[in-house]
Design a protein around this nucleic acid. Structure first.
Lengths: 124, 124
DNA sequence: AATACCATGTTATATAACCTTACATCTCCG
DNA sequence: CGGAGATGTAAGGTTATATAACATGGTATT
C-alpha cells in the first residue's frame, strides 16, 4: 500500500527519465499523448515522473523493440489495467473507498512535501 | 555494495530536494559549500542529488533543529567518515582496490545511463 | 552595549532545461 | 504511389537553477 505511494511519487525530471530509459523527449511526450503515462506537472508546468512511470516507459520500449506498434501496446496496457480494476472490486465497496481515501491523503502530503524526518528510507 | 550505487545515483533536481527536505536552496548550497554534500553536476552545471544526499540533508536539518551549529555538525560528519575509512582498511589493500574499481565502473555506467531493461527495480 | 561572526534571506543577471506547436522525415503497409 | 504512424527538429516562449553580492537577524564575545 505505501509501496504504491513510493512508486508513484513524482520525483524525476525529463532529462533524468531520458537517461534512465534512453528514450527521446519526443518519444516520452508522445507516449503521454497516448495516455500510457500521465506524469505529474509542477506549478511551472514541468513534467515530473515517478519510478512507476519509468517502469512503464521501459516496458513500452521493450514492446517497441519487439516490433509492436502503439495500438497493440495500448491494448496490452488497457488489459492490464482491467485486471487491476478486477482486483480492486474484490474488496468490498466501503473498504475500497476507505483505502483510497487513505492513499489520497498520503499522496497529497507527499506532494506538499511535508515528509517527516527519517522517512526517506521508504523510497528505496 | 550495489545498494551503495543506488543510493548515490544523481537522480534528483534542486526543487525536488527542497521539497523532500524542506530546506531552502540557499541552505542546501551553503551546506555544499561546507562539503557536507557534493552533488553531481550536469553538463549544464545544474546540481543533481542522490537519495544519499537527501538523507544527509535531513540529518543536518535534524542537528540544526537540535541547536547545533555548522562547526559541530561538520565534526560529527568528519567523525563518521573516519569510522567508515576505518571499516574500509579492514579489507586487504588489494581487495579494497578491486572493490573500488568495480564500484566506479558501475557508477560511470549509471552516469552514462546505459541501464539495462528491467534494472529499475534495483532503485527501490 | 557594541562588535563581530554565523546562517540565511534577497536581489540581479545569465543560461540551461523544459514547454508547446508546427512542420519535416522515415518506414511500413495496402 | 499514397497514407498513416512514429519520431526528429526547429522556433519562440517560460521556468528553474546558477553565481555573486549585499542585507539581515540572531548569538556570542569582549
Amino acid at each position: 500500500m505505501s509501496r504504491e505511494i513510493r512508486r508513484t511519487m513524482p520525483l524525476l525530471s525529463m532529462s533524468i527519465v531520458m537517461q534512465l530509459t534512453e528514450l527521446s523527449a519526443r518519444q516520452i511526450r508522445y507516449y503521454e499523448e497516448h495516455h500510457l503515462i500521465e506524469p505529474h506537472r509542477t506549478d511551472g508546468n514541468r513534467r515530473m515522473f515517478s519510478l512507476n512511470d519509468v517502469d512503464i516507459l521501459l516496458e513500452i520500449k521493450d514492446y517497441l523493440e519487439q516490433g509492436m506498434n502503439m495500438a497493440k501496446i495500448k491494448r496490452i496496457f488497457a488489459k492490464k489495467s482491467d485486471q487491476s480494476v478486477q482486483n480492486e472490486i474484490d474488496l468490498s465497496d466501503t473498504e475500497l473507498r476507505r483505502v483510497m481515501r487513505e492513499e489520497m491523503k498520503q499522496a497529497q502530503r507527499m506532494q506538499k512535501s511535508s515528509i517527516r524526518q527519517g522517512d526517506l528510507s521508504r523510497f528505496y
